[in-house]
Amino acid sequence: MNGPRSYIFNSMVRLAVFLVNVFALYLLLRGHNAPGGGFIAGLATAISLILLSLALGVQEMHRLLRFDPVLLAAGGLLTAIVTGLLPLLVGKPFLEHFNFHLHDVPLLGEVHVGTPLLFDVGVYLVVVGVTCKMIFVFAKSTQGLRALVAEEERRYSSPVEQPIEADVPRAEAEVGNQGKEKTHAD
């Protein structure tokens, strides 16, 4: 996605991202009582990130994000599962939820907090992670690929992976590949 890049577009997008994410947070927190919830919030955040990547370029996004969305998604799923496991500690069945009512919290007054929210956060993380990863990987794979492959390789390290598109001469790829094999040899 080497879309048009202009200063105005960039700043508009930055603003939009900020607003969308605030709104997403609102949706996430309000989900239990009004339309919203983990999915919707997650999708909103993901779309904001996609917009951002349109503005900044995918490579830049990666530098910015610093973490692998896969781990975000896996972490989200783990959060949801752990939320489900919590009641096991007190001898209740899997996935039973508990709500707490806190009175007199400073600034907010009465607050309902419960494990459903935690569960929803898990859903939110999964949706953000999955959507971002898919779009980014896909978008990047249509551009220069060596970098992408090298990067994924750092994460998962498999010496026999090769770029999906031979955008470099084959001989070069082989040299690179053999080099990698050496580094990964035990």
Partner: peptide, 25 residues
Amino acid sequence: MNWTILPILLPLLTALLALFWGKPS
């Protein structure tokens, strides 16, 4: 404690663990 969920959860957690682990070893 009801263990009935384990046949589903164990592989799921294992998968997540392996995913977090990342590199095959």
